[in-house]
């Protein structure tokens, strides 16, 4: 490795709101690991389940649930962060309550339209802010940003905030998702710079 004189990347911002190794953007980059699934709201459904119970909401049922709004910074493992993003949706804690799933399952698997998956401890979904978001900046969430609905877990790198969410399954044994099984960190806390396995 040798330093390229004059190349600074996009970094060098000392803002204390930026986790280590991040730079700030004002636009909203669109990242995707595959084709964008187009899901109409009249065929959309969200399922929450464990090994005992299963609950599915249609779009109308889902959007009738209590709405929670958050304004938060988001951080992508590809080094960009965006400040003060405004989201609205249904808190994951509400969904788990409504579904009546067991409250002692340690892990969650998140699965999506298009086949994407991610995994995270249930405590990251219920003890912190975590939404299934359907609104961004006051407007319906655009499909390239994960609409009709995406997970939002802003205290972890954004690959955990799965776009086009289709379901959450609570399990006893952790199972790495799409990126977690390809060398990315299993937890992904940006403040600890948990980018890759072993960080």
């Amino acid at each position: 490795m040798s330093v390229t004189a004059g190349f600074g990347g996009r970094r060098g911002d000392d803002d204390e709101r930026l986790p280590p190794g991040q730079y700030r953007v004002d636009d909203f980059p669109v990242l995707t690991a595959g084709p964008t699934p187009l899901v109409e709201t009249d065929s959309w459904a969200l399922t929450v389940r464990d090994d005992q119970v299963e609950r599915t909401w249609s779009w109308d049922e889902f959007t009738a649930l209590e709405v929670e709004s958050v304004t938060t910074d988001i951080h992508c493992v590809t080094h960009w962060s965006k400040f003060d993003t405004q989201w609205a949706g249904v808190s994951v804690a509400t969904l788990l309550d409504e579904a009546g799933v067991r409250d002692d399952a340690p892990y969650a698997q998140v699965y999506c339209y298009g086949g994407y998956t991610t995994n995270l401890p249930v405590e990251d979904l219920v003890d912190r802010v975590a939404l299934v978001a359907h609104t961004f900046d006051g407007d319906p969430l655009e499909v390239e940003h994960g609409g009709p609905a995406r997970l939002l877990v802003p205290h972890l790198y954004l690959w955990k905030s799965a776009k086009w969410i289709r379901g959450i399954r609570l399990v006893d044994h952790d199972q790495p998702g799409f990126w977690e099984s390809a060398g990315y960190h299993n937890h992904g806390d940006p403040w600890l710079e948990q980018r890759y396995a072993g960080d």
Partner: peptide, 8 residues
């Protein structure tokens, strides 16, 4: 390209 802080 490699930045002084190691970013590539």
């Amino acid at each position: 390209l490699t930045a002084p802080d190691g970013y590539q």
